[in-house]
Design a protein around this nucleic acid. Structure first.
Lengths: 344, 344
DNA sequence: AATCGCGACTTTACCGGTTCAATAAGTGGC
DNA sequence: GCCACTTATTGAACCGGTAAAGTCGCGATT
């Protein structure tokens, strides 16, 4: 019952069957000039008959292309499973990779250091042709490492965080401001935000923008902010503590940094006997399908995560083919009002 | 993709610095006998000083192990993003791969045919040393292909679906039965199930088991089943149509095939003015964090998806190292009662 | 007629490792 | 002091491709 591997068919077999040399086969399969149509056809026919496709491993070693891109994600596994963002992002990336017959090498790491080590070994070992970098932190070591290695990368994050690397980003500051303005326009003056992991750069961008946006409202306006780990539990805890205060000290609207926490917030409000949106308005972020599955439905800052991933992949191909560094903003998340927001 | 020319350090450099031959370095790095401790040390020191690690590409080509395992997932990208199952499963797989310094090659495919093609080209091109197969269907072509290629794989699914391949599976039939018995014990006699994609093998296993379980109750008991695509929207639609009938024709309990649809069901019930669990009980499946974030919280059939993924990876390593085919059941999902189920 | 240019291949030298037969050095027996 | 026997180390042959430098035949140029 031991699986006896098939005799592997190699370029040599194809060459023999087509009556040409290895080199000719290589030429044919890389659409390079120097072969007659007739020979080309014979080669392709032989390859088809033998079921041969070039070994990407051998190709890589021979120094041509590397058709794999890396993605290391540094977040606790348990949280990732729940965060709709990543799978959707990945599916967007894939949608572009597939067109180029590339694959995604995925690895969950536990620390930024581990990620740096992985970048090095992937690149040194020629396992990847480029990499996608996410979740930038203050003083992130990765830009320097990528630079030193000459590894083509695209950074997902605001240029202020990504140390000169080519970056793809959404304008979170503007989005936060829009969220606050929207709530203010509804009449809210006591607004809270349940943010993500404090260590992440985009969290601090949102935090700052939120403070500024609320500060720009009339003096009576008041802001609260809480940092979490993005988990639903943390979102529930934060919401509970924000809503336990008596009405004047209690926010009338809460903005969340992802959908999961907003869902959790909804449930906490219900459990506390507060009506959404009458007693408190909730605003989610990302706008996955989840926002339309709750009752009331969740208003959200929505953006096209799939498209975002696709843009990242396209940009990475640009970098790999030698394009200089650049900054690629994608559309700012827009407010999608639903059932969870209303005047206080 | 073209590779950026960089002063790559290779085994030759290490050999030169340690004053030995390439072969010796290889011996040292593969813990093979035949080298003196002193030489071994010198080699490791040289490697460390040069920051060298063996190229897995070259190793692969030279015929030793391949340290990448493949996973192709054939579901619409948009659904995947929302399905907590996959990311959690993947993180479980990764947890084992990391210990062996292996990586996961991930690809989203659009059809079973595309997946078969991918298996072939990954294996032929020596990109993977083994593969994980998920989402089995009736008459799935993959067992035959894996057999023919000699590709080491582990199938995620009941042995009746996976055509003799080594499989890792949960006993869904028993779990469904337990769910039905639980609801029956609460007093429910009109029970519905909102199932997953009809084409998937595990869906039909659950469907059959559900019919049998309800049939085994007193004759007055009645069952409904609806197939969906696992999406929240589909879950909402299914729930709506189940609950619009007048009370005698309406189920008093609904079992869902995943968490997302149960969340959607919860919201539909609320929107229809039905109280959960007083008017209708809902039971989710998988039990991701989501189930504890709703109000009421969702009772669910819960299992350890992370551990499941880990077991799959371990089993795959077994297959790769030549273990014969086997069947590896993991613990049956257990009922976790929460706030969404009660007597009718 | 000798030379040139060019298309259509073939040859050959890698890429960065692994593997194994061959060799050199060291040990012990007698 | 010679031989058999280990043990440490090397050299060369791959692995399956790519790429650059030949080779060869042939019509066009001078």
């Amino acid at each position: 019952m031991t699986a006896t591997p098939l005799p592997r068919v190699t370029i040599k077999d194809v060459a023999a069957r087509a009556g040409v040399s290895k080199g000719a086969v290589s030429l044919a399969f890389n659409q390079k000039p120097g072969l007659s149509e007739a020979t080309r056809d014979r080669i392709f026919r032989a390859a088809r008959e033998l079921g041969w496709a070039p070994s990407s491993t051998a190709r890589t070693l021979a120094g041509s292309r590397v058709d794999v891109v890396g993605l290391a994600v540094c977040r606790p596994a348990r949280l990732l499973g729940l965060e709709p963002f990543y799978m959707e992002f990945i599916s967007g990336v894939e949608s572009v990779l597939v067109e180029r017959s590339c694959s995604l090498l995925l690895r969950l790491v536990r620390s930024p250091d581990e990620e740096v080590g992985l970048m090095e070994s992937w690149w040194r070992g020629r396992q990847i042709g480029g990499s996608i970098l996410v979740d930038f932190r203050a003083d992130d070591p990765r830009p320097a490492v990528a630079e030193r290695l000459g590894l083509p990368v695209v950074a997902v994050g605001h240029p202020s965080l990504t140390g000169g690397l080519t970056s793809v980003w959404t304008d979170d500051a503007t989005a936060v401001t829009e969220a606050v303005r929207y709530l203010a326009a509804l009449g809210h003056r006591r607004i809270a935000r349940v943010g993500g992991a404090a260590a992440l750069g985009h969290t601090s961008i949102r935090t700052t923008a939120f403070d500024e946006a609320v500060g720009a409202l009339e003096p009576a306006a008041r802001a609260w902010q809480v940092a979490t780990d993005f988990s639903g539990d943390a979102g529930a805890r934060a919401t509970r503590s924000l809503l336990t205060a008596a009405p004047p000290e209690r926010p009338t609207a809460i903005v969340y940094d992802n959908d999961i926490m907003a869902v959790a917030g909804l449930s906490v409000a219900a459990e506390m006997g507060l009506r959404v949106p009458d007693d408190v308005s909730l605003l989610a972020w990302d706008d996955s399908q989840l926002c339309r599955l709750t009752h009331p439905t969740l208003s959200a800052m929505s953006h096209d995560i799939h498209g975002f991933g696709a843009e990242v992949a396209r940009t990475l191909f640009g970098v790999i083919t030698g394009e200089g560094p650049g900054s690629h903003p994608v559309p700012t998340p827009v407010l999608t009002p639903r059932g969870s927001t209303a005047p206080p």
